[in-house]
């Protein structure tokens, strides 16, 4: 998988894409106008951190502390996860100006 996001990039959820809990089925969903993805707890934890201000590296560092896991492992997993969502146009990366 070719990464579509670099550590210094700032990821964000574009207008119309939102995190949603589906209480009927007890699942977590990333809802876009024409598609939806079911998330697990880790995926939801990652997307909750997307504030449009912090870089992926900053988010990875925080998750590494919270989950007490190696930063290298989390960096790879988060990069692949966000790349999959960028391909689906459900996560955007801020243009660095």
């Amino acid at each position: 998988m070719t990464p579509l996001i670099q550590p210094q990039d700032v990821p964000y959820l574009p207008r119309g894409v939102r995190l949603q809990g589906d209480h009927v089925r007890g699942i977590r969903v990333l809802q876009a106008p024409e598609r939806a993805m079911q998330l697990d707890q880790i995926g939801e934890a990652i997307l909750t951190e997307l504030d449009g201000a912090r870089s992926m590296a900053a988010i990875v560092a925080e998750l590494a502390v919270r989950y007490n896991a190696p930063e290298d492992q989390i960096a790879g997993d988060v990069r692949d996860f966000l790349t999959g969502l960028i391909e689906r146009r459900m996560v955007f990366v801020k243009d660095i100006t």
Binding site: E34, M37, D40, D77
Partner: peptide
């Protein structure tokens, strides 16, 4: 909880 590789599952709409 421990870190695991996050999964994404497409939900078929409609």
């Amino acid at each position: 909880m421990a870190w695991t590789k996050p999964t994404l599952t497409e939900i078929a709409c409609g």
